[in-house]
């Protein structure tokens, strides 16, 4: 028998934090909520009242769902949502947020997950490796590459010449995703 009351209290307490990580992964409020809820629905049957271990379990599910399997719910909405996200927190420069989102969007999913785990959640390499089911060396390589790409991102370093590989990757991606981004306006 699950402790539904305890689960609800856990979600009220920790839901916002889970959503913040999910937002960095998905770059969108609605999708972040969907990702968190998908993970909660998957993990609820194992809620045992131990919030600490359960949160680790939920987070693992969030990241793995994000990296490997999320397709169906991997959906965008109309752009006003993005605009709403961007405008939500008044104290932050909206431009910076867009830049970070764009830079994150240029990373493959696993690298984005590594970046968020390492630098947003401050988790050690060993933990990231275990959580994502990767070798430690791969996590190191991915963190390094993700950082390089953020540094090299034209979005975050307007004055800097981006290294060749990154900038060509960025422009190639832009050309692929341009019509799709536009699609979201429908």
């Amino acid at each position: 028998m699950n402790d539904e009351g305890g689960f609800e209290a856990f979600v009220r307490r920790r839901g916002r934090d889970l959503w913040r990580s999910a937002w960095l992964l998905t770059g969108d409020g609605g999708r972040a909520e969907d990702l968190v809820q998908t993970a909660l629905a998957k993990t609820y049957p194992r809620y045992d009242g131990n919030d600490r271990s359960f949160e680790a379990y939920v987070r693992t599910t969030i990241y793995r769902t994000f990296v490997s399997w999320w397709r169906r719910r991997w959906t965008g909405e109309v752009p006003s949502e993005h605009a709403a996200d961007i405008g939500t927190a008044g104290e932050v420069d909206g431009g910076l947020r867009i830049d970070v989102l764009r830079a994150l969007a240029e990373l493959p999913r696993t690298q984005r997950a590594v970046l968020v785990l390492r630098y947003f959640e401050d988790r050690p390499i060993a933990e990231v490796a275990e959580l994502l089911g990767l070798a430690r060396g791969t996590v190191k390589a991915y963190s390094h590459r993700a950082l390089e790409q953020l540094r090299g991102s034209v979005h975050l370093s307007p004055g800097l010449e981006a290294p060749g590989r990154e900038s060509s990757l960025a422009s190639a991606r832009a050309s692929v995703s341009a019509p799709a981004t536009e699609e979201l306006k429908s």
Binding site: R16, W19, G29, V36, Q37, A41, V92, L101, Y119, F120
Partner: peptide, 27 residues
């Protein structure tokens, strides 16, 4: 810097109050 920037840009999270019920139903 990366940690700081990531922390800065995340918007305020919506209220999670309705999530538990929805997750239980979906589950």
């Amino acid at each position: 810097d990366v940690s700081k920037v990531l922390g800065q840009v995340v918007p305020e999270a919506p209220s999670p109050d309705a999530w538990a019920g929805a997750a239980v139903r979906r589950s």
